[in-house]
Design a protein around this nucleic acid. Structure first.
Lengths: 244, 244
DNA sequence: CCTGGTGTTCCGTGTGACGGAACGTTATTC
DNA sequence: GAATAACGTTCCGTCACACGGAACACCAGG
């Protein structure tokens, strides 16, 4: 366990999370480190090109090299790679915003998306995390998850206060999701989302696809179209993924 | 200069670049490090969640946490943020594949893109680098670059053998690019690309937008439409960016 | 059964990361 | 405008800890 490495990454995380450039001393107090230590580590990161310092204010920001590093990882990710053509197909079939996601802890992590050309939009960007039970894709994956209960309980605990969740009710809902083969979520009241799991090895979900559309342009027919599109695209993608 | 930090990042770079999981010993020989050192650093990275080890083969791969780290950086990037609506506008106007990019050393770095729904496509993904003079967007930016000559010479040197470049000819071409306000590239013979610079502070380019279309569906009228769309979108984006 | 490869563990050595204190500048305060 | 505060930076003595060499356990293939 190299302490310096651990700290360097903590610093880089802090710097890249922030939307504005960060002061050295605020990092030092946040991470409870000595200023001189933070300074040395930031200099090391700067020498490698991962952070840069604003000449006028002295504050630090993460550079795009940090992004390039991660970008390479995503582009080799099997689910993201396999999803590309199916995302496009799903987008073509429905004309709405479509996303691929995978489980990451108790959250879904959005890997990629194609946004609807139409005006209405909402705000899950690639790279963002959302608690799995709050999303249609997450529910579709949880329905295949053996210890869904544990996840639901942890999330319910975590979101206590901002959002009340009835674990038993949600478990029952997952049962119907499993029956029907898709999940529907009205997390955002103006948007209806429909998600399907991409079956991977061992009956678990390798990932999920979802379609999100504004409620006002989603009548029963449109909804049926989306559901069917999600189901066939998910099963076809699972076949492709299994062949790799 | 923390040596361990330097090495940890070198290792993470090596692991995330690779498309297949990497052997510990291959990293050790590549970076000329002791196996025990690599092992310790990989354990540290694994403990932080940036790499994981395949249980069966023992090989290492980068995790999506590495991607999340960089993903946050991109989403706070001023050019990428400002570009989003203009990318969409340009896509709507032309119906073709559109990209935003910035200069990164002697290369352009693609930040984002919207792909054409039509079948033809080609292969610059977000996060990839291409030598600036080879792209329309890069040429548009080089036209505003005081030391374009130095960049052209370095790139010509770097690409010697794979691709011959006449620096004087290209400098003259940049002159016409500056006159006309856009650049055109036929780097890929089947595709025509038209790029425009987004004017930033000090007369330099903050970034560039480009449109790429298959040659067979690009007649003179279409081309004129694209050129005009690129020009107005770039100037409008520059105004927006300047107001921040 | 041996050889060559893997990833892993152990450990003595010495270097380089560490934190505290002092520094020079730049904002902020009264 | 002096005083104060907060910033990033530099210096330095101390000792933890990163280091690399060697030995380990394991799995292939010959």
């Amino acid at each position: 366990m190299d302490r310096a490495v651990l700290r360097a990454f903590q610093i880089l995380e802090a710097v890249s999370r922030a939307r504005d450039p960060v002061r050295l001393s605020s990092i030092a107090t946040d991470l409870d480190l000595q200023k001189s230590t933070v300074h040395r580590l930031l200099q090391t990161l700067a020498a490698m090109g991962y952070v840069s310092q604003e000449p006028e204010t002295g504050r630090y920001r993460a550079t795009l090299k940090t992004w390039e590093l991660g970008s390479g990882v995503l582009n080799e990710h099997p689910v993201k790679r396999a999803a590309a053509p199916f995302l496009e197909e799903l987008h073509r079939l429905t004309g709405e915003t479509v996303s691929v996601m995978v489980m990451a802890g108790d959250d879904v992590l959005y890997l990629d998306k194609i946004i609807s050309p139409r005006p209405v939009r909402f705000t899950t960007r690639a790279g963002s995390r959302v608690a799995a039970p709050l999303t249609a894709g997450g529910q579709a994956m949880l329905a295949l998850e053996p210890d869904a209960r544990a996840i639901l309980e942890r999330v319910a605990e975590r979101l206590r206060g901002e959002r009340e969740m009835d674990v038993e009710l949600l478990l029952a809902a997952l049962e119907t999701v499993r029956m029907r083969g898709y999940a529907m979520s009205r997390n955002n009241p103006a948007v209806v989302s429909i998600g399907g799991a991409i079956l991977g090895q061992g009956g678990r979900a390798a990932g999920a696809l979802s379609v999100s559309a504004p409620i006002e342009r989603t009548d029963a027919d449109k909804q049926a179209l989306i559901i069917e599109s999600v189901r066939v695209t998910c099963t076809r993608m699972a076949e492709t993924l299994g062949r790799l």
